[in-house]
Design a protein around this nucleic acid. Structure first.
Lengths: 214, 214
DNA sequence: GACTGGTGTTACCGCTAGTAACACGTATGT
DNA sequence: ACATACGTGTTACTAGCGGTAACACCAGTC
């Protein structure tokens, strides 16, 4: 059991794992989030127990799969968030990056937003509400960190930043989801509307004639 | 087949349907969104085929169940939205109403946010992204209508209102979900933070020393 | 009394996630 | 050279799911 052999094995296992993940990716892209383990195994040219040896259970495979895409998307978002430009431009660029991603690959995005599922009887924690997709949480935390690092929000800075991070991400997600289903306008228009909302146009708008206003 | 008898039968069927829905409610509240049809039938004291005769399939039962809670929650939200007060107060009241609801019954809320699932091979439309929970969509449309009715937003009023409706609902949902899982602050504080976000504090905040600002 | 319609059952189908048990190749220790 | 251990792969299975077909019972009606 010398070191070189162990690394060899590990390398082989890692390569195998990547191949399996790519096969799973193709199936999920084709069949949606409810792709079966049988289908994934068949696509990879092997049988189920191998998948289970590599990933434990379906949740493990899905987590590994989600991590790849989540990391990639988060990298794009960070890039847009870090670009050298005015705050408004940067916010719009980030929104546009996210919307472009979900527009380009709706199946992947749909998969990422899907909660864990826990088929038979595992991982059930009903008493709390933490069912949201990991991607949303990670994006929220990431954005919160950026906000807290860069904005001066007074004494309650941290709390405000975290609430805003998750809130803005949720706004982006829900609006994007609705937009993807109905396509009521162009992406650029959607970006502008959302940025306007974040820029306080809701509070600044005048009441409509005849009513007390929202 | 005279009218009175048909009404009698219909009444009986309706009562039965309500009983079944209440049983399903109890099971979902106990087991979460993945409650099985067997469990629900057992809770109602009957067997599966009866459930299927009443609701068609699992999606039908879940849709009926969701409609009850969704209608109830939307009524509460409408009440908060229509209260006689300033705009900011009303926004805060609406946010608080939603958060209080999900805080009081997280399982129900979790169930409502769950997408349709389509067990075996039904209702699969992967090419579009319309997987979101009906509750989110309905709340978004409802809020959009209120915004459009009451605010003067210029020529692009309708589009802005719809984007904002879905965006604000998504913000509320994501922030509420995160808050419910981590409980980082009181409900009132969360409400204030979110209202501040909607009131443009993000755009108004100053840059932190040493960086160009978000 | 035969007939019809609603309510209920049992027993099944095909599918899923997940696993146990077995077979093959290969490198190693004695 | 041979036995041993190990990783890789298979087949065949379990338990449970959503959903359904076929049958039983019990009312009211012609």
């Amino acid at each position: 059991m010398d070191t070189t052999q162990r690394t060899d094995q590990q390398r082989s296992a890692d390569r195998r794992r990547r191949e399996l993940l790519e096969a799973a990716d193709r199936v999920v892209l084709r069949d949606g989030p409810q792709a079966s383990m049988n289908a994934i195994a068949a696509e990879a040219g092997i049988t189920k127990p191998i998948l289970y040896r590599h990933f434990g259970d379906k949740g493990g495979l899905y987590a590994a799969l989600a991590k790849r895409h989540t990391d990639a998307l988060l990298d794009s978002l960070r890039a847009a968030l870090d670009a050298p430009a005015e705050r408004r431009e940067r916010v719009e660029a980030t929104l546009d990056t996210y919307l472009a991603a979900i527009e380009a690959r709706p199946q992947v995005y749909r998969f990422l937003m899907h909660p864990a599922e826990g088929g038979t009887a595992a991982e059930q924690g009903f008493d709390v509400g933490k069912h949201s997709a990991p991607l949303l949480r990670r994006m929220g935390e990431e954005l919160a960190q950026v906000i807290e690092d860069r904005l001066d929000l007074g004494p309650e800075s941290q709390q405000l930043a975290r609430v805003w991070g998750h809130g803005i991400v949720g706004m982006m997600h829900a609006a994007g989801d609705w937009w993807l289903g109905e396509r009521p306008c162009s992406r650029a228009e959607l970006v502008r509307c959302l940025a306007d909302l974040l820029w306080g146009r809701l509070a600044a708008a005048g009441d409509r004639v005849g009513g007390p206003g929202f």
